[in-house]
Amino acid sequence: MNAPASIAETQEEIKAEFATLGGDPEMTVMYLMELGHRLPSLPAENRTELNEVKGCQSKVWLLSREEGGRIYFEADSNTAITKGLVSLLVRIFNGRTPDEILSADLYFIREIGMSRFIGTQRSNGFAAMIRQINLFAAAYKAKLLTSC
């Protein structure tokens, strides 16, 4: 069995998938929506204000847990495009160590030219999700250090 893809490898996969859309804005938005539909929804009891990512125009809920030094994410949103966006982050960061997450360079966002397709407001929301993931990673890192 192959080793799991690295953060860089996963970004390359995502880039390749978006490349097949040929930079067409409508196809790109539709693809993001499809990704959103594919991500399982969170149960209603997890879609709480406490789990909300602040700074998004749409509602985004992001949950994390740590297992054996690796972090796992679950996410949901009330809009399909945003759910598609957060699904990309879940795909990239699931099962990573805090250090992998904190040192990651998410170059795929620039290289796909995401802001062109999703606009500034959604781009700001996307940045807020990434910030939240980094906060979780930093918190788990601190917790893991103190529990050693």
Partner: peptide, 14 residues
């Protein structure tokens, strides 16, 4: 079954 934001983004792409 569709959030208005998603519809707005799809229309913008057109």
């Amino acid at each position: 079954g569709m959030h208005p934001f998603d519809v707005g983004q799809l229309l913008d792409a057109r």
